[in-house]
Measured scan of single mutants.
Amino acid sequence: MAEQVALSRTQVCGILREELFQGDAFHQSDTHIFIIMGASGDLAKKKIYPTIWWLFRDGLLPENTFIVGYARSRLTVADIRKQSEPFFKATPEEKLKLEDFFARNSYVAGQYDDAASYQRLNSHMNALHLGSQANRLFYLALPPTVYEAVTKNIHESCMSQIGWNRIIVEKPFGRDLQSSDRLSNHISSLFREDQIYRIDHYLGKEMVQNLMVLRFANRIFGPIWNRDNIACVILTFKEPFGTEGRGGYFDEFGIIRDVMQNHLLQMLCLVAMEKPASTNSDDVRDEKVKVLKCISEVQANNVVLGQYVGNPDGEGEATKGYLDDPTVPRGSTTATFAAVVLYVENERWDGVPFILRCGKALNERKAEVRLQFHDVAGDIFHQQCKRNELVIRVQPNEAVYTKMMTKKPGMFFNPEESELDLTYGNRYKNVKLPDAYERLILDVFCGSQMHFVRSDELREAWRIFTPLLHQIELEKPKPIPYIYGSRGPTEADELMKRVGFQYEGTYKWVNP
């Protein structure tokens, strides 16, 4: 592979701008107003304001973009700056750019259920340069409990009458099928589907988006991507930290609602779906819905739930269990780990287990898709061969690698495990991989909904998990304890083995 010439960040961002501006969906010269509902909250200060700053800094926003914060707290732009700027990672050389960014910011205080507050917000936006005809993007960085009041008031008082209007809704989209349907029906009564952007930030990850290209742009994968060759698929999300004093919020939802029903299920769809007619948003989402419709409700015998306990040999936070978090209700049975087996009941995947695993306070930070292939028929190497695996590593250190057998150097035919490896950090030294939120917010500006969740996708996802969630809430089974920093409950490994996964433990990928 030829040595790549190092590029400056300015040059890299210039390439990104060229890609972005050559499309006809990006209205570079139009006025846009980006409204952050819930501007005083954690999500706004840690993710949304920093993301908008990065896009502005790199010249990736339309030229005439204004940012308006809205929340109940009586704040000023200076207050917003004070709480969000520490997350910007701005350099001293960017000081003038930073001043320009905050000059485009404003803030309006108001209630979430008060019509007069929204009329005041609308008047404020109209007073901005060309504000009355601007395109408006409303980001709901809010708890779902206020979605209905907020969307109703936005629709009645704050819509642009000339430009387009788009609304970005953060997960969780309800707690179960019934609450999700209620919320979807409410929002759909106010906005068209092409105006609604239900954001799952995992769909903005580079390697998640790469799944489609790997599958449908490489001839070698087509013939082997089926039940005849693939023994099982494992989708993993692991965090090495616990709730760390923020367990009160987590306890309301648990690990299945927080990660599995959305992030992991979306990745499953991209692995299992048929080739779409095109890369058009609805063509892709149509195929994802077909996959979900082929999955039956989760069966309790295919589920393992766990909850982390303190590690007596650990240090600091590792010595504390979930129930030691003062914000967690006493005696909570909320799971911090889950392993679930699903089956896609169609011709391509009949009988292939899709194993979804996620948890907190585990032994490493990792998100990946792992396809394990069947054993080689007619073994001539005296059971020395391990199964081939194709691994798409989402985070950290984005990579695609194939675990395969090669001859060990020497005189004899002794096979050993090795890999074919594409590590993004080595291959793409001159490429700026956008943060997931950067990519998705740019998608909203461009009107691309491919990486957002459609209402029928959402409904099918909740259909699969709601009976299990209701059973857990009714019966309150005690989750299996696992030690902070471990791989999780051993019962999860036993479940995976029972459905056909072979864990060798003899080879570990190392970032080159």
Rank of each mutant, 00 (worst) to 15 (best):
D176I: 05
G242W: 03
L96D: 09
V208I: 04
F253C: 11
A78G: 09
L235T: 03
N185S: 14
S73P: 08
Q28D: 08
F216D: 15
S184V: 14
S180A: 03
G131L: 03
Y249F: 14
S184E: 05
E252Y: 05
G59P: 00
N135Y: 02
L130W: 09
Y118L: 11
P240R: 07
A141C: 05
E94Y: 03
N165E: 01
N153F: 06
N126M: 14
N153T: 03
D228R: 12
V213K: 06
H155P: 02
Q111L: 06
G163E: 00
R219H: 10
Q133E: 05
K82C: 07
S123E: 09
N185P: 02
Q22W: 10
I220N: 03
D114R: 09
E99H: 13
R17D: 05
Q119K: 10
V150K: 00
V108G: 01
Q161T: 09
V77K: 05
P172Q: 05
S180Q: 04
K152D: 12
E193T: 03
G204N: 15
K97P: 04
Q11V: 04
Y70R: 01
K45Q: 10
N135T: 03
A217Y: 02
A103M: 13
K171L: 06
I220V: 09
Y49R: 00
A71E: 03
Y118V: 05
T243P: 12
S73N: 03
R227V: 04
L121R: 00
L61C: 04
D228M: 08
Y202G: 15
P223S: 15
A44L: 02
Q119F: 10
S8L: 10
A134P: 04
L121M: 06
F34G: 01
E93W: 07
L183P: 03
E94C: 06
A71G: 12
S29D: 14
Q22A: 13
L142A: 07
R166Q: 00
F253Q: 14
Q22N: 10
R104W: 02
K45M: 11
A103I: 08
A217T: 06
Q28G: 07
T10L: 07
R175N: 14
L214Y: 14
Q133C: 10
H129A: 07
T145E: 07
D30A: 15
D114C: 10
S157V: 10
G59C: 04
S117R: 04
R104N: 03
L137G: 04
L121N: 00
R182P: 06
L137Q: 03
Y118P: 00
I256M: 09
K47H: 10
R166A: 02
H186V: 10
Q119G: 03
G247Q: 09
S132T: 12
G41E: 13
L211S: 02
F88Q: 03
F250W: 11
L61W: 03
N135R: 03
H124G: 03
L137N: 02
I33V: 07
P144S: 13
Q119L: 06
N126S: 11
N226F: 02
T243C: 14
A141Y: 02
G204F: 15
N218Y: 00
F138T: 01
H27N: 10
Q28F: 13
Q178S: 13
Y202P: 15
A149D: 12
D24A: 11
G247S: 10
I35Y: 00
E94P: 00
Y139F: 09
N218M: 00
L16Y: 06
R175D: 09
G204E: 15
Y202S: 14
Q28I: 12
T151F: 09
L96G: 08
D194W: 04
Y112V: 03
I167F: 13
R198D: 00
H129S: 05
I33A: 05
S40H: 04
T145W: 11
V150L: 06
R227H: 08
F88L: 12
R17V: 12
E193K: 04
S117P: 06
E170N: 11
D42P: 14
A115S: 14
A231E: 10
Q111H: 09
D79N: 07
R198W: 02
F250V: 05
F26K: 06
F88R: 01
L75V: 06
I199Q: 02
F21W: 14
W53N: 00
Y70T: 05
H124Y: 08
L75Q: 05
A78R: 06
Y139A: 05
K47R: 10
D251M: 01
M125H: 00
S123P: 00
A78H: 03
S123I: 07
A25C: 13
I154W: 00
S160M: 03
L142C: 11
G242I: 03
V169N: 06
D181M: 05
K82H: 13
S184G: 07
N105M: 11
A25E: 12
G174C: 08
D114H: 13
Y118D: 00
P223K: 15
F216E: 10
F102M: 05
S40I: 06
R74E: 10
C232Y: 04
D79E: 11
R17M: 09
P144V: 14
I187A: 11
P92M: 08
N210H: 14
V213Y: 04
D181G: 10
D181T: 08
D251V: 01
E148K: 15
G254N: 07
V12K: 10
H124A: 10
G110D: 00
F66H: 09
T236G: 04
R192T: 08
H32P: 02
F216Y: 13
T236W: 02
E239Y: 04
Y202Q: 14
I35S: 06
Y118N: 00
Y202V: 11
S179N: 08
T10H: 07
I67M: 06
P50Y: 00
Y202R: 15
G204W: 15
A78D: 11
W164C: 08
W54E: 14
Y112S: 04
S106A: 06
I230W: 01
R219Y: 03
R219E: 02
T151C: 06
L137I: 08
